[in-house]
């Protein structure tokens, strides 16, 4: 069970208080009607899904009800940082298969 620091409550709380909400930093296209089908499909469904460092949204559902972001390693499950929506992470996304 993950131990998550809520940047709004400024405390560590148990995972049971939170709900994971998927990849972070996916911006809704500003002009949807001008976005082609492929780009719209990409926004809706396609994900980085890295085997490594991942930026993801969590909701402090049974706490302050705030969304925030977590930088977490998807293999070790180590949490590198948590930060508020609108802030940028310090750790970059990595992916074991990322080298090309």
């Amino acid at each position: 069970m993950l131990h998550i620091y809520c940047p709004h409550c400024e405390e560590y709380r148990e995972e049971e208080e939170f709900r994971p909400k998927g990849e972070a930093h996916i911006a809704r296209p500003k002009a949807p009607e001008e976005t082609d089908d492929a780009a719209w499909g990409d926004y809706l469904f396609f994900r980085k899904n890295p085997r490594g460092v991942h930026h993801e949204q969590w909701l402090h559902a049974a706490g302050c009800r705030k969304f925030f972001n977590v930088t977490r390693h998807t293999v070790s499950y180590e949490i590198l940082e948590t930060y508020k929506v609108g802030q940028q992470p310090t750790a970059r996304t990595t992916d074991k298969g990322g080298a090309k």
Binding site: Q57, A61, R65, K66, F67, V85, G86
Partner: peptide, 13 residues
């Protein structure tokens, strides 16, 4: 409720 909060907090703060 989660849905409303999601859009407000993450897309249109």
């Amino acid at each position: 409720l989660d849905w409303l909060e999601l859009w407000h907090q993450t897309e249109w703060p």
